[in-house]
């Protein structure tokens, strides 16, 4: 089995590559990235910059030259987005290029990770969001809205290419010591703000569970979207406590104003969009991943959060 991976150096890539390396069924891994991942045996490296105008041609060449059984499109940003247009270029345009190349090469399988934050935190969310729920995104967040746009592209691709088995894994916030995303950065502070009077339910996935889910997607005989969530839920304050920080409740209008001001000044480290996620619950139902994909989370949200604490100390 030959596999292609974009974004092998990202968070998802770091979770998946060791598993593929250890998988005896995987002969080789074609890494399509700007730099070669370290310490790998099965990797064939092909340098592709997804943000370049000729990325699509490069990808098509690479994929037709050395046909693969599956492509993991993992090139997504989780770091602080300093360059908004570049992020947009990478995520939306890069995904477009990848999808086109996959279509041309007629790959049998495509796996794209996404996030449950794309459902959006809204007052009229049901208690548990199923995969069929519409993705409302978050009005103020480029980060989330880019992901929603990517999902739209992938859905359109899936409808046009029924031969390609396309899996979209919507991950709850990933927590783990090796990960760097907005939530882990927020939880690494000793005091984490909450909205006074609100304590929505949060989910999280332990990094091990996330890696396992990605690996499962390699062989599953299903297609479509799956919510990949850890066991159980925690209120936001509980998550903060489990991660070893202290919740600091701030009255909403004040909080929002302060964040805006900080954002204007340019010191804003906390995305304003997170406020919505501290206000309303957005709990995704992991039932389908369990029954169809065979993904049963091992770690409770608690464990995921306290793993974060251990890594900080």
């Amino acid at each position: 089995m030959r596999i292609a991976v974009t974004g092998a150096n990202g968070d998802y890539g770091k979770l998946l590559l060791p598993r593929l390396e250890a998988d005896p069924g995987v002969e080789s891994i074609l890494v399509l990235d700007t730099k070669e991942p370290q310490g790998t045996r099965k990797v064939e490296f092909h340098r592709v910059d997804l943000t370049r105008y000729d990325a699509e041609a490069e990808l098509t060449d690479a994929l037709t030259e050395r046909p693969v059984d599956a492509l993991f499109h993992l090139a997504f940003l989780f770091g602080p987005i300093l360059n908004g247009p570049l992020a947009h270029e990478l995520e939306v345009i890069g995904t477009m290029n990848v999808l086109t190349a996959v279509g041309r090469a007629r790959l049998p399988r495509l796996v794209v990770p996404s996030l449950t934050v794309t459902y959006g935190a809204r007052g009229n969310n049901p208690a548990l969001l199923r995969e069929s729920s519409p993705l409302f995104g978050c009005p103020h967040s480029r980060f989330v809205n880019d992901k929603v746009e990517v999902e739209g592209q992938v859905r359109a691709f899936r409808e046009r290419h029924p031969d390609t088995r396309t899996l979209v894994l919507r991950f709850a916030p990933l927590l783990g010591k090796s990960l760097d995303n907005p939530v882990t950065r927020l939880l690494s502070h000793s005091v984490v703000p909450t909205l006074l009077g609100f304590d929505p339910l949060w989910q999280a996935v332990h990094e091990e569970d996330a890696g396992r889910a990605l690996h499962l997607a390699l062989r599953a005989d299903v297609a479509g979207e799956f919510n990949i969530v850890g066991r159980g839920v925690l209120p936001w304050s509980g998550l903060i406590r489990q991660a070893g920080a202290q919740p600091l409740p701030l009255p909403g209008p004040l909080f929002r104003g302060a964040l805006r001001a900080l954002g204007v000044v340019g010191a804003g480290t906390l995305p304003v969009a997170l406020l919505d996620y501290m206000h309303y619950s957005w709990v995704a139902d992991g039932e389908r991943a369990e029954s169809a994909l065979g993904f049963v989370p091992v770690h409770h949200v608690r464990d995921a959060a306290s793993a974060l604490r251990r890594s900080q100390s």
Partner: peptide, 14 residues
Amino acid sequence: SLGTGGGSRLDDYG
């Protein structure tokens, strides 16, 4: 109710 309680034994409905 202030939103700092934590709590760890929640079910899916909260």
